[in-house]
């Protein structure tokens, strides 16, 4: 029946002036075109991501130091076993999680405050310029930020200690003092990334339906009621994404620390990415450092999975609402 009705259906559509659907050949062309666009990205991804990752995974089962004369020796899980007992590395990892939690918390709270202030000041002249300036730290490379902060914090000729002395205090050795170095790095990282969280907050606030805000105003809801019942429910996905992106990024912090403190004093600011860098590119212990990199990769994958889960959650919610 369908085979007999189909031609008549096409004929009737033609009579009605409705164009017939594209023939299968056209669809095939479209598919090829899509693949044509996709292939360069895939090739790049495979060459630059997949193969090196697999290579790294393989290397993690070898005893291989670049500067030794011997060939790589297959040692199975030995690198991982050694990793499990490596106290300094676990200490670095613990320090990294502490840094991550503190940095993300500070940046989220202060970023939210700054973002809200900008949102409420949309009629203030110069807002755009202020926004541009606010985002400057975020677009600087961590290397340059680390360098000029190190110079500014220098106890001998740093400008910050100049002001410290002006107010009658003793110079502070921010980057080499055992108790101050870690907070100093934390402050600089926050200086760099609070703007990002402010931006996410602005985006979140922008996603709140105007009608709901107006309704809340008509209902005379207090600030906290509006925040809890209107703003957070509508903007939370964007804020959570911001938090997750920062979490993943902070976990990888290396260049800022390397420039500011070189992991010191002692090992007080040695985050896990700095430790990995030393193992791989100072000691050239490629097998062992690959094992550590694999471990960090899995941690990063776990964090990314949360990110993807949140994204999917939002899609599912939107689908349900629709």
């Amino acid at each position: 029946m369908s085979s007999s009705s189909a031609p008549s259906s096409v004929a009737s559509r033609l009579e009605e002036g409705i164009p017939a659907p594209a023939p299968p050949r056209a669809k095939s062309k479209k598919t090829w075109w899509s693949w044509g666009l996709l292939v360069p990205v895939l090739v790049f991804f495979i060459l630059m991501n997949v193969i090196p990752t697999i290579w790294m995974l393989g290397l993690s089962f070898y005893n291989y130091t670049l500067t030794s004369a011997g060939d790589p020796q297959f040692i199975g899980m030995d690198n991982y076993t050694q990793l499990a007992g490596a106290g300094p590395l676990w200490l670095s990892l613990g320090r990294t999680f502490t840094f991550m939690v503190l940095a993300v918390a500070i940046q989220t709270v202060l970023g939210a405050v700054v973002g809200y202030l900008f949102w409420k000041s949309n009629k203030v002249p110069g807002r755009r310029l202020a926004l541009t300036l606010l985002f400057t730290p975020m677009i600087l490379t961590p290397l340059s930020s680390g360098l000029f902060w190190r110079l500014m914090l220098d106890p001998v000729f740093g400008v910050i200690n100049y002001f410290v002395e002006l107010v009658g205090l003793e110079k502070i050795d921010f980057t080499t003092d055992a108790t101050l170095a870690f907070p100093a790095v934390l402050v600089v990282d926050s200086w760099m990334w609070i703007p990002f969280m402010a931006l996410m907050t602005l985006a979140a606030l922008g996603s709140v339906p105007k009608a709901e805000l107006e309704a809340a105003q008509v209902d005379n809801l207090s600030f906290w009621q509006r925040l809890v019942h209107v703003i957070i429910p509508a903007g939370k996905f964007i804020i959570i994404l911001g938090i997750l992106l920062r979490t993943i990024d902070v976990f990888k912090t290396m260049d800022l620390v390397y420039l500011m403190t070189n992991g010191g004093p002692g090992d007080r600011t040695e985050l896990i990415a700095v430790a990995l860098y030393r193992l791989a590119f100072k000691s050239f212990n490629l097998g062992y450092s690959s094992a550590l990199a694999v471990l960090l990769l899995f941690i990063a994958i776990a964090l990314t999975s949360i990110y993807l889960f949140v994204l999917n959650l939002r899609s599912r919610r939107e689908a349900e609402n629709a």
Partner: peptide, 20 residues
């Protein structure tokens, strides 16, 4: 699966020393 692929790459790695 990743580990399996990684192990499969060992044959390639065996030839990555500077000596060879």
């Amino acid at each position: 699966a990743l580990a399996a692929v990684g192990l499969a790459s060992t044959a390639v790695l065996a030839g990555c020393s500077s000596g060879d």
